[in-house]
C-alpha cells in the first residue's frame, strides 16, 4: 500500500488504481439489479440514494474543488451554481441555459473577484 502510483507504471496504475476500484461498483450494481423489479418500491429507494449521493458529489466539487477551480473564491463558486440553477428554472428547465448562465457567472466572478 506504500507504493506510489508512479512506481507501478502508468498502465498498471490505471487498471489497479483507476479502473478496478471504479468498475467494482458497476458490477455490484448489476448483481443488485437482479433482485429489483421495474416499478418496485425498493427501486424508488435505490434511485433516491443515487440522487442523494450525486448531490453530495456536487456539494464536494463546489465546496472543496479539484485543481484550478480551487483558485476561484468560494463565494463565486457557490453564487455561480445558484445563478445557473435559477436560470435553469426561469428558462423552463433548460439544462443548456442553466450551464451557460452558471459558467458565465463563474468566469465573470473570477475576473471581478480575483
Amino acid at each position: 500500500m506504500t507504493a506510489t502510483v508512479r512506481d507501478l507504471g502508468p498502465y498498471l496504475a490505471l487498471v489497479l488504481v483507476g479502473f478496478l476500484p471504479n468498475e467494482i461498483w458497476r458490477v455490484l450494481g448489476i448483481v443488485i439489479a437482479r433482485g429489483l423489479d421495474e416499478g418496485s418500491e425498493l427501486l424508488v429507494w435505490v434511485r433516491a440514494v443515487a440522487t442523494a449521493v450525486l448531490a453530495g458529489i456536487i456539494a464536494q466539487l463546489v465546496l472543496s474543488p479539484p485543481g484550478a477551480l480551487a483558485t476561484v473564491a468560494l463565494v463565486v463558486r457557490v453564487t455561480a451554481v445558484i445563478i445557473g440553477f435559477v436560470a435553469f428554472l426561469i428558462a423552463r428547465r433548460s439544462v443548456f441555459i442553466g450551464v451557460l448562465a452558471g459558467e458565465s457567472a463563474l468566469v465573470l466572478g473570477a475576473l471581478i473577484w480575483p
Binding site: W25, G29, I32, A33, L36, L43, V46, A50, V53
Partner: peptide, 11 residues
C-alpha cells in the same frame, strides 16, 4: 454513486 445508478437503470 455508480452502484445505485446501475441498479436503478438496469431493471
Amino acid at each position: 454513486r455508480l452502484l445505485p445508478m446501475v441498479a436503478a437503470l438496469l431493471p
